[in-house]
Design a protein around this nucleic acid. Sequence first.
DNA 1: CCCATGACTGAAG
DNA 2: TCTTCAGCCATGG
Length: 107
Amino acid sequence: MEVNFFDKVYAVVRQIPYGRVTSYGAIAKSIGMAKSARMVGWAMTSCKNDDTIPAHRVVNRIGLLTGKHHFSGSNLMQQLLENEGVSIVNDRVQNFDTIFWNPEELK
DNA sequence: CCCATGACTGAAG
DNA sequence: TCTTCAGCCATGG
């Protein structure tokens, strides 16, 4: 049977190491939909049905917490990241190039 | 079918 | 890094 697009996204997000982050585009590319990063974000919107998805580790290409507003409260996403040792300043991940995790790197 | 929207990205200035 | 423009694709009216 065909694998659902959502399942692929979730599978990748679940593999993001502790204290690391990645981008929507990187995920999209790893599942064969590099041009559909928007769909990744769209899939994350439905992640509220899956509380096992560390969506807070997924940010946009420059480390901006574009999806923080979708979390409960207004700073939960940032709190979760800082709890893992990720520095956030002005809704942006510091040392993004250092803590960035490439999904294809695992393969 | 057409149009608007969205947790995006790349290119150009 | 920021702003603007265009491409991207699923969903909903």
